[in-house]
Amino acid sequence: MLDAASALFAERGYERATVRDIAARARVNQALLFRHFGSKRALFGEVVSRDGTEQLRSTAPERLVETVLASMLAPPTADGGDTGSSRSLETLLRSVGAGDEVSAAVAALGDDYARALATLSDADDSGLRADLALAWLVGIGLMRVVVAKQPLAGADAGEVSRLVVGALGHLLEGMAPHHGQGPGHG
């Protein structure tokens, strides 16, 4: 059920993903979704928390920017899907402004990412540096995934990652050096 909800929230955003469609994709009755989660908002909160928490739990802070970029920039798989943690940012971007509870879930996850990124800097303003890095990542995601702004939307994922990780490395001194993907990167 969570995988189906994650996929639909990422594709359509919170407002346009219906409980009926989520239940159909999960091949369950809507009543089962409501029994387990109580509401669409609670289901969304669970999806966001699960996907983002899993990415944070499984990724060392010095690799977080590169991991977020890789998941955000990767094309969907042949079946049109991808893994839950790779949908986390896309889900959030498509759902910002969907309501107080949704905004609260977005803010809480953003705080978790910012705390992890803040550990990469010994500077007195490490919190600000982390927020700036997170804002840039969200902006890149918004422009590439939601707005589909060219040339960013069509740019090579490895090249985008190389440029962003290199630039953010100056802001967050503890980031691991980029191990580029693709020819000529490394």
Rank of each mutant, 00 (worst) to 15 (best):
1 M>G: 12
4 A>V: 02
7 A>F: 06
9 F>P: 04
10 A>Q: 06
11 E>I: 02
13 G>I: 08
15 E>M: 05
16 R>M: 00
17 A>L: 05
18 T>M: 04
18 T>D: 02
18 T>K: 06
19 V>W: 03
26 A>I: 07
27 R>M: 01
27 R>I: 03
27 R>D: 03
29 N>I: 01
30 Q>V: 07
30 Q>H: 05
32 L>I: 12
33 L>M: 05
36 H>G: 01
38 G>I: 00
39 S>A: 07
40 K>D: 01
40 K>A: 00
40 K>L: 00
41 R>M: 03
41 R>L: 07
42 A>H: 01
45 G>M: 10
45 G>L: 08
48 V>S: 14
50 R>N: 13
51 D>G: 02
54 E>A: 15
54 E>V: 11
57 R>A: 13
58 S>P: 00
61 P>E: 10
61 P>F: 07
62 E>I: 01
62 E>L: 00
63 R>F: 00
64 L>P: 11
65 V>E: 03
65 V>P: 05
66 E>K: 01
68 V>K: 05
71 S>I: 11
71 S>M: 15
74 A>C: 12
74 A>T: 13
74 A>D: 14
76 P>H: 06
77 T>S: 15
78 A>R: 12
79 D>A: 13
79 D>P: 11
79 D>Q: 07
81 G>V: 04
82 D>Y: 13
88 S>E: 13
90 E>K: 14
92 L>H: 12
95 S>K: 11
96 V>M: 14
96 V>Y: 04
97 G>E: 06
98 A>N: 07
99 G>H: 05
100 D>N: 02
101 E>V: 06
103 S>Y: 02
104 A>L: 06
106 V>I: 15
108 A>L: 08
109 L>F: 15
111 D>A: 13
112 D>T: 10
116 A>E: 15
117 L>S: 10
119 T>Y: 14
120 L>F: 10
123 A>P: 13
125 D>T: 04
128 L>I: 11
130 A>N: 11
131 D>P: 04
131 D>W: 15
132 L>N: 09
136 W>R: 09
140 I>K: 04
141 G>N: 12
143 M>W: 08
147 V>Q: 06
149 K>N: 09
154 G>V: 10
161 S>H: 14
163 L>Y: 11
163 L>D: 14
163 L>E: 12
164 V>S: 03
166 G>P: 11
166 G>I: 05
168 L>A: 01
168 L>P: 06
171 L>A: 01
172 L>S: 02
172 L>P: 04
176 A>K: 05
178 H>Y: 15
178 H>P: 07
178 H>T: 08
178 H>N: 15
186 G>H: 12
186 G>L: 09
